[in-house]
Amino acid sequence: MPLLEVNNLRTVFHTEGGTVRAVDGVSFAVEPGKVLGIVGESGCGKSVTALSIMRLVPDPPGRIVGGEVFWKGTGLLKLPPKKMPSIRGREIAMIFQDPMTSLNPVFTIWKHLQEVLWKRFRLKGEPAKKRAMQALSEAGIPDPESRLAAYPHELSGGMKQRIMIALALLCEPDLLIADEPTTALDVTIQKQILYLMREMQERTGMAIVLITHNLGVVAETCDDVVVMYAGKVAEQSTVHDLFARPRHPYTHGLLRSLPHKGLTREKALPMIEGTVPSLVAPPPGCRFTPRCFRAEERCTREEPQLLANAAGRKAACHFPLDEEKQT
């Protein structure tokens, strides 16, 4: 049984400009102990998917209007709100892009850890302090004792993200959802944080959902990948298959448009024309049609389903790249 199963999830936001269908029928599963990447451009619905799983979508203006999220077989969306805190933070933990906004600026680092240690483990005094220092040093924080007394603004971005990871892992969750955890960091620090996450994952056996826009981060960190476009899943596959043989024309276009080792401006970058469509009035049929080099008339009228090929790789496309196009 998968650890987490997202089934036909639909989340909307009611805005002045109309109803934004931010997540529009998204399905995927997370296996225990695996790192699943959710990759896509801004507005594709990857962060809203994560917030929906945690039931943290602000309502209003947002609302989960359909689908189900199964956590170890239990439907989370129908759970009474009182029950969520026993899962959120304990079994499923989350870290965000900007660690500054996730830490309380008037509390020391010790205060943050102390609260969790008391609420979750009824630990206080010396044992709590010992456990807190252990958590910080496991997260690669030098001199944990003096860091406990520090306020968030006294720490660098990388150090704050390490604190967030230490906090998230304090409860030994089975799943860590990390939403763009390294986007605000420099590349040498990004490398350190990704390395730390992978190391923690191997040590504890937890699963990770890593949400990112960076295909390089996906390639270096994930086992499996979900590619999202305009509120829907375009493609899902193992990381090796995805980069070696993308099935969806969007994935194919994204990968080709990246500058890579040895390529110089003598050769123009292959690019995807146009921009991401509006989610208030998305184009009918496949939402990628206006930008797709393989699109046919059928794509403008019929929405493709997310279907697996013989090898079990899913793509939502009428004319995936591994199939001869019949017209």
Binding site: K191, G216, L258
Partner: peptide, 22 residues
């Protein structure tokens, strides 16, 4: 810097240790 910048190719995934410090 070159070793830290993520390469969009899982086949080149290396076990390069990140440099320490900030």
């Amino acid at each position: 810097l070159i070793a830290s910048s993520p390469v969009p190719d899982p086949a080149q995934r290396g076990e390069v240790q990140p440099i320490k410090g900030e």
